[in-house]
Simulated scan of single mutants.
Amino acid sequence: MAGNVNIRTLLGFVIVALVVALAVMIARNFKGFETTEILDNLPANVDLAMKRIQYTETQDGVPQWALQADSATHSFSQGATDIENIHMVFYDQGELGDVTLTADRGKFFSDPQVVQVEGNVVVKSPEGYTFYTDALTFTAEDRYIRTDDDVRLLSGAADIKGNGMLLHIDTRKISVLRRVSAVIEGQGGGL
């Protein structure tokens, strides 16, 4: 019985010694950071920085649209969030299905809810309707997507180009505003 007590005591001592040795190694090798290091990396007008964000707008518990971005920086004084690598989904758009929007960068304003995007802007529906532009604005209040830039709309056999566009999300009515040209191919390969 005395041998069991000595082995238990010895094992307890070994375990405590290992824990202490591990704690010493962690303490010696731990490189702490100063909060000023993190704050120095933020731009002067940024109050909050985030990675991989998702915002979903719902109405009566039903998602209306969602915004995802790889990164975001928010300024409380400006009331705006700068976002990078944007992916938006406008849910259940009738025969068009869920419409998606992608862009390189943009701004999200929460009051009123406005999303402005630019750089490689592409809006697609699962039915094959696609339009391209350099910049556009989505306003949640009136549910319009609009741009004053050049646009190109592709829809099956139709290729429509112009300058400026309005797209109402709910009615799916698209208006190309200026300098409109269209090529519509028939089954024979021509117009």
Rank of each mutant, 00 (worst) to 15 (best):
T36G: 07
T171M: 01
D40H: 07
I53W: 03
M25A: 13
A158W: 13
V24E: 06
E84Q: 14
V151N: 06
F76V: 11
Q68I: 01
P43C: 05
N29M: 12
R179S: 07
V46F: 06
D40V: 10
L191Y: 14
T139K: 11
T81A: 12
I174V: 15
S175I: 09
D142P: 02
L18R: 04
L96M: 09
E57L: 05
M165E: 00
L11A: 13
T171N: 02
G97V: 00
D40I: 09
I174P: 01
N85E: 11
V180T: 11
L96F: 09
D111I: 03
A2P: 07
T102F: 05
D148C: 04
V99R: 00
A157C: 05
F108N: 02
I145G: 02
H168W: 04
L48P: 01
P43E: 12
L48W: 02
E141Y: 03
Y144C: 04
T9H: 15
I174M: 13
Q93R: 14
K124M: 10
V46G: 01
R52G: 12
A23F: 12
A21H: 09
A135V: 01
Q93L: 03
V121L: 06
D142E: 13
Q64N: 13
A103E: 02
H168C: 01
Q59E: 15
E95N: 08
Y132S: 05
I83N: 05
L191G: 13
F138H: 08
L101M: 11
E57F: 07
R179V: 03
Q113G: 09
D60P: 10
P63I: 12
L136C: 13
L136F: 10
G119F: 08
E57A: 06
D104V: 14
V151D: 08
L153S: 00
N41H: 00
T35V: 10
T81E: 03
A27R: 09
K107S: 03
S71A: 13
I160T: 15
I160C: 15
D104F: 06
T137R: 03
T130I: 14
V115F: 02
G189K: 11
D92Y: 02
